[in-house]
């Protein structure tokens, strides 16, 4: 394996991993506060991707301005959708047993995925990359696709942003308090259900962001939601549910793993996330960064 090839594969794996991180961190964040594992997270990400496609075909052309417009419009739109879902549905099942919560989000998958099919149809679509990100950059004499490098840098930016938000702002303090002692937080006069709603919206915002980034990276179709939600499960299982740092590690393992195993294993590389998820669950069910639950 030549060094150029190795670097190329690494960039590819890292950009896949970072995209996955943006989506999985939303799932993990929502689980941490709400204690609900949201099956519909992948569907929200898919709606984000298709929404990006619709808007980009309205404004037409791949200018940087249009791409920034997508980044500014689509994630908040998904967050608003999340707001509606949280207020009308999720809020009713927080005190219920796990099974009912899971089934509720599963029902949402059925409804949302089918709505996407009815609205956008089954044809593969994509969003044109802005010219500035469309070409390739020279790094150490290697021509690397700019867009992949861009996504590779987006991941750490989002990770740092989340860390700053959670550890350096009052909103983050409230979120972290709601994870550990929701009742005490409520007794101190904080509106805990508003904290939950906001966290859910933040998770949805991340799903929408992942959708926009994905729409310009590769073709999108009706299968991407389910594909990413299962990969995200693998990520949060590896890293530990509710841990952002864990999600980063898990995303890198899955992204790089799938990319590099593709060479010796071909199509069998797709099995990799499942195998590693099973191994981690058996060896350390609460993940690398998680805590065992009682």
């Amino acid at each position: 394996m030549s060094i150029e090839y190795f670097v190329f594969m690494t960039i590819n794996g890292l950009s896949q991993g970072m995209l996955l991180f943006i989506i999985a961190s939303g799932l993990s964040l929502v689980f941490g506060v709400l204690r609900v594992i949201n099956f519909a997270h992948g569907s929200l990400y898919m709606i984000g991707a298709f929404l990006a496609f619709s808007i980009s075909s309205l404004v037409s052309g791949g200018s940087l301005f249009n791409f920034l417009l997508l980044l500014l419009v689509v994630p908040p739109a998904i967050a608003i959708l999340g707001f509606i879902l949280e207020i009308s549905l999720f809020r009713r099942v927080y005190r219920q047993e796990h099974l009912l919560q899971l089934l509720l989000t599963y029902a949402l998958v059925l409804i949302l995925d089918d709505l996407v099919r009815i609205v956008w149809g089954g044809n593969p679509r994509n969003v044109p990359r802005p010219e500035i990100l469309a070409g390739s950059v020279d790094i150490f004499g290697l021509a690397l696709p700019t867009y992949n490098v861009f996504i590779m840098f987006m991941g750490p930016v989002i990770a740092l942003g989340l860390w700053w938000l959670l550890h350096r702002t009052r909103a983050g303090n409230l979120i972290r308090a709601a994870v550990t002692f929701p009742d005490t937080l409520g007794a101190l006069g904080v509106n805990v259900s508003w904290v939950m709603t906001s966290t859910f919206m933040l998770g949805c915002w991340l799903a929408g962001l992942g959708g926009v980034l994905m729409a310009a990276l590769a073709n999108i179709d009706l299968g991407i939601g389910m594909e990413k939600i299962i990969e995200s499960f693998a990520v949060v299982v590896i890293g530990g549910l509710g841990s952002i740092g864990g999600a980063l590690l898990g995303s890198l393992i899955i992204g790089l793993g799938v990319t590099f195993f593709q060479l010796p294993l071909g199509r069998w590389a797709l099995v990799f996330p499942y195998v590693i998820m099973a191994l981690v669950l058996i060896w350390r069910p609460w993940g690398f960064f998680g805590k065992p639950e009682r």
């Binding site: 899971l102 199509r267 499942y274 099973a278 669950l281």
Partner: peptide, 28 residues
């Protein structure tokens, strides 16, 4: 044998992982 070692949500996810694993094997 593996799954009953886990409880709750983790049991659910591991059963999902195993069945998807079988699905992939049959697929490939």
């Amino acid at each position: 044998w593996f799954c009953v070692r886990l409880t709750g949500l983790y049991f659910s996810i591991l059963t999902l992982a195993f069945s998807q694993l079988l699905y992939m094997v049959a697929f490939q």
